[in-house]
């Protein structure tokens, strides 16, 4: 049985560096992100990333809230970040 979700639970922010870098125009692995939910600030590389074929879900390492969602669509990459107060490059 395919087990994509379980296999990818332990990925970190480096897993979405390419997609986020293209969207933000910065090296996001060295960027700092602030969590709306708990206020935790950390480098993107230390976030938790849950990869699935539907998209990548970037979660706060401190409280597990969703920071950023990346969806690869046929018409381009959609990046939404309602859980991030800001991303600083």
């Amino acid at each position: 049985m395919s087990d994509d979700a379980q296999r990818t639970d332990r990925l970190d922010g480096n897993a979405v560096a390419g997609a986020l870098g293209a969207a933000y125009g910065i090296d996001v692995t060295l960027a700092v992100v602030r969590c709306v939910s708990c206020g935790h600030t950390d480098v993107v590389a230390r976030t938790r990333v849950h990869l699935s074929p539907m998209g990548a879900v970037v979660r706060c390492a401190a409280c597990d809230a969703v920071l950023v969602v990346v969806v690869e669509r046929p018409d381009g990459t959609l990046v939404s970040s309602p859980g991030a107060s800001w991303v600083r490059g």
Binding site: M1, S2, D3, D4, A5, Q6, D9, H50, S52, P53, M54, G55, V57, R59, D64, V66
Partner: peptide, 11 residues
């Protein structure tokens, strides 16, 4: 024939 697992977070 499989049943792939998809979710947006940990189980």
């Amino acid at each position: 024939q499989d049943f792939p697992v998809l979710s947006a977070g940990p189980t």
